[in-house]
Amino acid sequence: MCHAPRKEYHRKFLSEAFPVESHLHHNLHDHMNAEVVCGVVENKQAAVDYLTWTFMYRRLTKNPNYYNLQGTGHRHVSDHLSELVETVLDDLESSKCVVIEEDTFLKPLNLGLIASYYYISYKTIERFSSMITQKTKMKGLLEILASASEYAELPSCRGEEESIETLVRHQRFSAENSKNDDVHVKANALLQAHFSRQTVVGNLAAGQREILLPAPRLIKSLVDVISSNGWLSLALKAMELSQMVTQGMWDRDSMLLQLPHFTKELTERWQENGIESIFDLAELSADKMQNLLQLPNSQLKDITDSSNGSRISECRMKSVKVMILEPVAL
């Protein structure tokens, strides 16, 4: 039971073998960068030899049009692979991920090492390096994070531009001169909605989950790029951005929002009673905590357990900051 014009297609799909093609040539830059970093590919000839061991090489002569191959002869395949390797390595060199010595030997650079370690695109690490400056603020860090090429394939649904425009208007940092159908503007808006704990539904909620999934490793790579330039204050700000993603809150929000069952209204009420931090909360008696919270015992237990763990984490974070900020005498 199917649409009549599709019947023949489904019948062929069920009764005949369906060809599977390689997509390696669409992502070869990142694979080649990783192999150079690992030391598997040390020169251009090794890069060509590497391709001969791939599934793409097996399919080249079987379906030449799919791979833009001009002919199926050995010379055509050899020229195609050599040209492909030259193009990929030139792109990697221009993005400062790889250096080509004596027009043959390949050496990884710092950006290439970072991209390979965190498994991110060479385009993303190049964009991070070119956009970041010592004077970048939190708004700029968010824009840089949202510009990652990993977000270029975000699903876009028809008619969601109005919802994205509403999101952009109600966020802390507005996107100036931006198009609401741009996936990077969408990523920026959904990240800020996550920090504000603003509820999004439907396709936007699914898109937000896809944005948050790679965000921690993208930020870690951004921290490494910043650290390579020796910008301490900016590196700490990028680490704060990582905490914002994990905790779902802005850096200016109360630390009490890290605890389960806490809302902004409840946090404001606690601050009126002089409770500013998790340490203040931990010093309260159980009866006074219950009177202020007015929550079920099960939720109260969750808050108590989390506050004890958060005190340890907060002490560790303070000690880490002291280690970073205070020079050690050697």
Rank of each mutant, 00 (worst) to 15 (best):
K7H: 11
P19R: 07
H23S: 09
L24D: 01
H26P: 01
N33Q: 08
V36I: 13
G39D: 04
V41T: 04
K44E: 12
D49N: 14
N63H: 12
L69V: 07
H76G: 05
H76E: 15
E83V: 11
D91K: 11
V99H: 09
E102N: 14
L106H: 06
I114G: 03
S116F: 07
Y118N: 12
I120D: 02
S121W: 03
R127W: 05
R127L: 11
M131Y: 08
K137W: 04
K139S: 08
G140V: 05
G140M: 03
E143K: 10
E153Q: 14
L154H: 04
E165K: 14
R169Q: 11
Q171W: 00
Q171V: 08
K179Q: 12
A189Y: 00
L190K: 01
H194S: 08
S196C: 08
N203E: 10
R209A: 15
R217K: 15
I219T: 00
I219D: 00
V223L: 05
D224Q: 12
D224I: 02
L236W: 01
L236E: 09
S242V: 01
Q258E: 13
H261F: 13
T263Y: 09
E265K: 14
R269G: 02
R269N: 11
S285A: 12
L292Y: 06
L300V: 12
D305Y: 04
D305T: 06
S307A: 15
S307H: 02
N308C: 00
S310R: 13
S310A: 15
I312R: 10
C315Y: 09
S319T: 08
K321S: 07
V322H: 12
